[in-house]
C-alpha cells in the first residue's frame, strides 16, 4: 500500500500523477469482415471490439422487439491475457456480469428505435489485461460503433478510479486494482455529463464518493478528448468546436 502512491513525490507505482491517464492508442477499422471494429490500448491493457449489424434477428423472432433493435453483447477475456492462464474465455460469472454491463451501457446510447426488429452485435475481447478492462472495452466498442456507422447519442467514455491515501487515482492498473483499496468504474456521456454506468464491488465511505466521481468524470473527458482527436484526424479536419474543448 505504501508504495502505490509515494507520500513525498506524490507519484504512483508506474510513475504517473494521480490524475494522469495511461497512454491511449487506438485504431479503427482493423477487420474488413466486421461492419465496425477497433483496437484500443490503455497502457498495457489491450482490447479489440467488433460490431456487426444492424441485421435481422438471430435466434428466432421471439427475441426481436417490434419498436427497436436488440443489442447483443459478448465480453470475453483471452486465456493468455492475464498473469494466470484462464480456462474459459467467457461464460464465467465475471464475464457474464461484464456482458450485461456493456449491454446496459450501449442500450442507453445507441438510437435503437431507428432499427425496429433488428439486432446489433457487439463483441469485445481483452487481449492484454492490466486493470481497467471494462473501461477499455467501452472505449473500444464506442469507436467500433462509430466505425460501423450506427447512430449514437454521444460517445461513451469509461474511466476507473481508486482511492489511496485519500487521493483519487484514475485509470488504475492491475496492481492498484488488486491492492484492496476501494475502486469503481464510471461510464459517461461527455457532452451531456450524464452517467450511464457506475459500478463498484468494493466498500468505501460515502464522504469520498463525490471526490472520486469528480476525478473519474474528468478522466472520462480526457479519454473523450483522445478518442475525439483520433476520430477527427481520421476524418481529416478539426472543427472549431473541438479546439475549445481541449
Amino acid at each position: 500500500m505504501a508504495t502505490l502512491l509515494d507520500p513525498i513525490i506524490g507519484l504512483r507505482i508506474d510513475g504517473r500523477r494521480p490524475n494522469e491517464l495511461r497512454k491511449i492508442q487506438c485504431e479503427v477499422g482493423v477487420f474488413a469482415q466486421a461492419d465496425g471494429s477497433a483496437i484500443v490500448s490503455q497502457g498495457n491493457t489491450k482490447v479489440v471490439a467488433t460490431v456487426y449489424g444492424p441485421h435481422e434477428n438471430r435466434g428466432g423472432r421471439s427475441k426481436s422487439l417490434h419498436d427497436k433493435a436488440v443489442i447483443n453483447c459478448q465480453y470475453s477475456v483471452a486465456t493468455f491475457s492475464g498473469t494466470e492462464r484462464k480456462n474459459k474465455p467467457h461464460g464465467d460469472w465475471k464475464t457474464v456480469e461484464m456482458t450485461s454491463h456493456l449491454k446496459q451501457t450501449f442500450e442507453a446510447v445507441i438510437l435503437t428505435e431507428k432499427f425496429p426488429k433488428s439486432q446489433i452485435d457487439i463483441y469485445v475481447e481483452v487481449l492484454q489485461s492490466d486493470g481497467s478492462n471494462y473501461c477499455a472495452c467501452v472505449n473500444a466498442a464506442t469507436l467500433a460503433i462509430i466505425d460501423a456507422g450506427i447512430p449514437i447519442k454521444d460517445y461513451v467514455c469509461a474511466c476507473s478510479v481508486s482511492l489511496i491515501r485519500d487521493t483519487p487515482l484514475i485509470d488504475i492498473n492491475h496492481l492498484e486494482e488488486s491492492s484492496g483499496s476501494p475502486h469503481f468504474t464510471l461510464a459517461l456521456l461527455p457532452n451531456y455529463d450524464q452517467i450511464v454506468l457506475l459500478e463498484s464491488a468494493s466498500r468505501m465511505h460515502v464522504d469520498y464518493l463525490d471526490k472520486m466521481m469528480e476525478s473519474a468524470m474528468v478522466g472520462c473527458k480526457d479519454i473523450y478528448a483522445v478518442l475525439n482527436k483520433y476520430i477527427k484526424s481520421r476524418v481529416g479536419t478539426i472543427s472549431k468546436n473541438f479546439s475549445n474543448l481541449i
Binding site: K153, D154, L189, N191, V235, G236
Partner: peptide
C-alpha cells in the same frame, strides 16, 4: 457544412 462527431450540436 463541417465535420461533426456524435453528440456534437
Amino acid at each position: 457544412e463541417d465535420t461533426y462527431i456524435p453528440g456534437e450540436k
